[in-house]
Design a protein around this nucleic acid. Structure first.
Length: 276
DNA sequence: AAACAGGCCTAAA
DNA sequence: TTTAGGCCTGTT
């Protein structure tokens, strides 16, 4: 879309996103802040500049306000879940620390692919690989004087060979990515359809993919399909559960927004909050 | 230099 | 059903 005007929308109110927490909590890999705190990235097909301005979050892009309200999950009320989390020992601290995180409604394919890449990698390298994938095979879009690249669609990635992906340095994950892309592209694997079934059922389907185990599947379910009850368990969460929760604790006891609690725990743990 | 990073796969108990 | 090693690569 050339010649589209730049729209500037503002998000505010009780559920105003905390941009830093939301973008740095580990759920997404394509938003980066410059030295003045302006985040630049791409959501779906839309590049954007996002920053906090007093009581507002300002989003500059070519997309409508409804697009961003959806992306930031503004139509889901987190307050009741937060209130409950605050009553749970230790989780309360995580909640106070992480409050303001929004679970983004990311593109399902992008989320699946990104979390396949994430396995046994640190966040900087995940970001590097994802960015390389977008630079090489996404579409270049100009916005506000800068160039951005979209995340390549499954139908593009499906046509690539392992060799094509070698510049990513993704190692053994490359064939996983291509295999997933082929299945998604063929229609054999319908990610949109997985939104309409339960989190557990969606996870079972995702586990059929090569290179997708319990953890990656749960991440794809939570961050890509927005099944908020999904509760991915990685090394950080496992340690937190062991150290701060009774042995009989079951994450699903946290209710239909358990995934939000997971993200609070993850963000708090990674920030060193439980090492003091 | 060896171990580890937001796992997963396979083979073997 | 649980466990051990290997896997691409980059960093410490």
């Amino acid at each position: 879309m050339q010649n589209s005007e730049v729209k500037e929308i503002r998000l505010s109110g009780k559920e105003k996103p905390d941009i830093i927490k939301t973008f740095e909590c580990g759920q997404c890999f394509r938003w980066n802040a410059d030295s003045s705190g302006v985040y630049r990235g791409v959501a779906g097909k839309y590049p954007a500049e996002i920053y906090e301005d007093g009581d507002y979050v300002v989003v500059r892009s070519q997309a409508e306000e409804s697009f961003w309200r959806d992306y930031f999950d503004m139509n889901t009320d987190y307050s009741a879940a937060d209130a409950h989390f605050l009553t749970v020992p230790w989780l309360g601290e995580c909640t106070l620390f992480g409050r303001g995180i929004r679970i983004l409604r990311q593109n399902p394919w992008e989320a699946l692919c990104s979390f396949i890449i994430s396995q046994c990698n640190n966040i900087p390298r995940i970001k590097k690989i994802v960015e390389c994938l977008c630079t090489l095979y996404g579409e270049t879009v100009e916005f506000s004087g800068a160039k951005y690249c979209t995340f390549p669609d499954a139908n593009v990635v499906a046509g690539l060979s392992a060799e094509d992906l070698s510049p990513l340095r993704a190692g053994y994950r490359a064939p996983y990515i291509i295999n997933a892309a082929k299945l998604v592209n063929s229609g054999e694997f319908d990610l949109e359809e997985l939104k309409s079934i339960s989190a557990d059922e969606a996870k079972v389907k995702l586990l059929q993919l090569q290179g997708v185990g319990e953890k990656v599947a749960n991440c794809a379910v939570l961050f890509g399909l927005h099944h908020m009850e999904a509760f991915p368990v990685d090394v950080w969460i496992r340690r937190a559960l062991k150290e701060h929760f009774p042995p009989e604790f079951r994450p699903d006891s946290l209710g239909e927004l358990a995934g939000l609690a997971q993200q609070y725990i993850f963000y708090y743990s990674r920030s060193g909050g439980d090492r003091c």
